[in-house]
């Protein structure tokens, strides 16, 4: 899950570039006969063009090719209304499966139910309603934010030899972002257990501003032992912020980006958590196919959450942008 803000909904007006990218993202025709194909609508919730989705799309397209699925990738421009329209269009087109990001609790529950009632298979990926069984979606493929938060926190405690009474800061791009709230909940749970205090910092999605705010925070609280970025931007600037504030906390966070991987390889960052983006695209398509063809029930898969550190970062670097 990538950092995103509601403000990005503004981008919904930029239909031009969205259409362009959507068109280029259409799968190349496969050798299988048309009537055998399973039709799936795959809804990405942001506007087109966010590089985070590249491995997801790659996964979806490779799965489609492998299984003989005709996948139609659509973008909701971070607009719940548009996403509901896309779901309704898919229902009207009588597709056999829908994969979507349930990024706003309660917003898509009704239409998911409508799709299921129409006999369409539904799988959510990347983000799901935090309440168990809140929707009729048959399965969720994505990171368990809470668990991922716990995992990185434990890794940081170990790497920095943090002990009771130490302090940790967790900067985030957008205080309202769901991923940030959930990941922090996991981090805090793990740190509280160890008697370590923690605090979130609203750092803004602008790199220069985030850099300054994190540095200023570290100047004000030089006793901070660890910085855990909750999203890719704040994670990426972490090492530079520490350097500018002239302090040496351990640094880690979430998501993969070339900058983050380089920092890990250079030893300036301890670890980051992989979101498993490729499987977010691959698995839903595969499960929808087997369900439609043979009735194999889909099942939730907590993908991602793998901690990436110096030991396995090299491989990530190699496949960044395609499989990672």
């Amino acid at each position: 899950m990538k950092k995103t803000s509601r403000r990005e909904a503004l981008a919904s007006m930029i239909a031009g570039s969205a259409a362009l990218v959507a068109a280029s993202a259409m799968p190349a025709g496969t050798a299988l006969a048309e009537e055998e194909k399973v039709n799936v609508t795959f809804i990405i919730y942001t506007a087109a063009g966010d590089p985070f989705w590249n491995p997801v799309i790659q996964g979806a397209q490779e799965a489609a090719k492998d299984r003989g699925v005709s996948v139609d990738i659509q973008y909701a421009d971070s607009d719940p209304v548009k996403q509901n329209n896309l779901i309704e269009t898919a229902i009207a087109n009588k597709v056999q499966g829908i994969a979507l990001v349930n990024w706003l609790p309660d917003a898509f529950t009704a239409n998911i139910a409508k799709a299921r009632a129409a006999g369409i298979a539904v799988i959510t990926f990347d983000t799901d309603d935090p309440k168990p069984n809140a929707t009729e979606s048959q399965a969720y493929v994505g990171q368990d934010f809470f668990a991922a938060g716990q995992r990185i926190a434990r890794k940081m405690v170990e790497a920095g030899s943090l002990k009771k009474g130490d302090h940790v800061v967790a900067p985030v791009e957008d205080p309202d972002a769901f991923y940030g709230t959930e990941r922090y909940r996991g981090i805090k749970a793990a740190l509280d257990e160890a008697g370590i205090t923690s605090e979130r910092l609203d750092a803004s999605p602008t790199m220069a501003t985030a850099l300054t705010r994190i540095s200023q925070y570290l100047v004000g609280r030089p006793d901070t032992k660890a910085v855990i970025g909750l999203g890719s931007v704040v994670t990426e600037v972490g090492p530079q912020a520490a350097a500018e504030a002239n302090v040496t906390p351990v640094i880690g966070g979430f998501d993969l980006s070339p900058g983050i991987i380089d920092s890990i390889l250079a030893g300036k960052m301890v670890a980051t958590v992989d979101s498993g983006a490729y499987y977010e695209g691959y698995m839903p398509i595969v499960m929808l196919y087997y369900f439609v063809k043979y009735g194999v029930p889909p099942s939730s898969i907590p993908i991602g959450g793998t901690v990436i550190d110096k030991s396995n970062a090299e491989l990530v670097k190699k496949w960044a942008g395609t499989y990672r």
Binding site: G49, E173, P205, T206, M207, G259
Partner: peptide
């Protein structure tokens, strides 16, 4: 900072 992200500057 050496990097630019699409959401910056908002």
């Amino acid at each position: 900072v050496g990097t630019a992200t699409p959401a910056q500057g908002i």
